[in-house]
Structure formats: C-alpha cells, structure tokens
Simulated scan of single mutants.
Amino acid sequence: MTRPLVITDCDEVLMHMVVPFAQWVDAEHGVLFRMEDASFAGALKRKECGTPLEAAEVWPLLDGFFRTEMARQTPIRGALTAMAAIARHADIVVLTNVGPDHQAARAAQLSALGLDAPVIGSRGGKGEPVRRLLDERQPSVAIFIDDLAGHHHSVAAEAPEVWRLHMVGEPAIADKIAPAPHAHARIDDWAAAEDWILARLTENIPAPSPEIA
C-alpha cells in the first residue's frame, strides 16, 4: 500500500472561476453571465439582445480566459490552508478540465500560491484518469473532489472505491447546483471539508461500492 491520494478539481474548488470569467466576458466580449440553474452554457447571453450563445461559442471563450486571464482568479476561502493540512497525510493531484494546452499554466498558477502538486489537464469525464492514477499509485485510500455532478458519476463508474466529495466553493452559484447523487457528501466550506477529508484518510478504508445506473 502506498500513501493516500486526494484528487481535486481546481475551478470552484480551489480557485474562483465563474466570477472573474463573468467580469471578463462582460468587459471584453459583450456577454453576460447569469447562472439561473446548473447550466453553464445557458448562462451566457449577448448583452445587446439577450440571446443565449450557441454551444460552439462557449469553449472559445473558456479557452481565451484560460489562455490569457488566469491571473484574475483568486483562491477559494480556506482552500490552500486545507490543502497544506491534507498534504501532511496524503499525496495531492490536481485533475482539471482545462485540457493539456493549459496544464502548465495551471500548475504555475497553483505553485505561485504555494500548492506544488502534479496537475493533469484533462478533457471529458474524469473516471478514466482517476482510474489510471489509482492503478499507477496504488493508494491505501483515495478521495475525489469536484464541483460537477457528471464527474462524480464518471468516477463512481470507473473507480467506485474512491470517496467522492461534491464541493461548489463559489457562493455565487452554490445554491444553483443540487448535490451530486453519486457523491458521498456535499460540502461547500473548506473548514468542514477538511475535517471530512481527514476523517476519511484516518479511517483508511475504501468507499462502499454503489450500483451505477
């Protein structure tokens, strides 16, 4: 058995993203971000007429933000302190869907804030990359943290032994997002989340395997 492993998302878990992104698309692209439900793409509307952006228009905006505007992001309250405490008990890997193109910039962003952890810039569901990490590292226990319910479903299907924590650390959208049904817990505050994570690490046992629909 090797050291426990915590696999965490970045945006809205470690770093604020939607608020600086909304400020940028408003100022630079004439787009309003108004999240009324769990749909990120549906929250983007043209200021001049109020029509939603097409799905094909959303990724270029996200790509542009991550390419040039990551300096606008700031840490979620308590995230870095919690990561420092967790690192005394487990290895940490940041698994973020910014894609390979922005992986190095994300690693540099977090390193500048004192979090020197491996960063994987993935695309799509996170179940497969989590499974690969488990197979490579063979941790005694593993915990996955993400703000998107779809990733919890993906991880539950591919790596059911992983404990899954649903966290939406951005207060501006947390109440718009329902608890992920395939997560073991929903906690949006890092002080409480740190306690929950450390308890799972202390127990050092795999998560119970659910039936995945």
Results as ranks from 00 to 15, higher is better:
100 P>G: 10
73 Q>P: 05
87 A>L: 02
27 A>M: 01
117 A>S: 15
133 L>V: 12
22 A>E: 11
76 I>G: 05
173 I>K: 13
10 C>Y: 00
30 G>E: 01
97 N>C: 08
4 P>C: 15
148 L>I: 00
75 P>K: 15
114 G>L: 07
37 D>E: 14
13 V>Q: 07
78 G>M: 05
29 H>K: 14
9 D>Y: 06
142 A>C: 11
158 E>N: 14
95 L>T: 09
204 N>M: 14
185 A>W: 10
20 P>Q: 03
83 M>L: 10
169 G>A: 10
189 D>Y: 00
18 V>F: 08
54 E>Y: 01
158 E>L: 02
90 A>G: 07
177 I>H: 11
164 R>M: 09
200 R>L: 09
87 A>E: 07
120 I>F: 12
10 C>L: 08
9 D>T: 02
104 A>G: 04
173 I>S: 05
144 F>G: 03
68 T>A: 03
10 C>D: 06
140 S>V: 04
125 G>Y: 09
59 W>P: 11
208 P>W: 03
206 P>F: 00
42 G>V: 10
53 L>C: 14
206 P>Y: 03
113 L>M: 09
99 G>S: 09
19 V>R: 13
124 G>E: 11
135 D>E: 12
169 G>P: 09
184 H>M: 04
30 G>W: 05
67 R>H: 12
55 A>P: 05
165 L>H: 11
85 A>K: 12
148 L>Y: 12
134 L>K: 13
62 L>Q: 02
131 R>F: 08
131 R>Y: 05
120 I>W: 07
44 L>P: 00
172 A>E: 14
69 E>P: 03
150 G>W: 09
12 E>W: 06
20 P>T: 05
145 I>A: 03
67 R>Y: 03
121 G>L: 06
9 D>R: 02
95 L>Y: 01
94 V>W: 11
111 S>R: 15
116 D>G: 02
138 Q>C: 06
53 L>Q: 07
17 M>H: 14
153 H>T: 08
93 V>Y: 13
94 V>T: 05
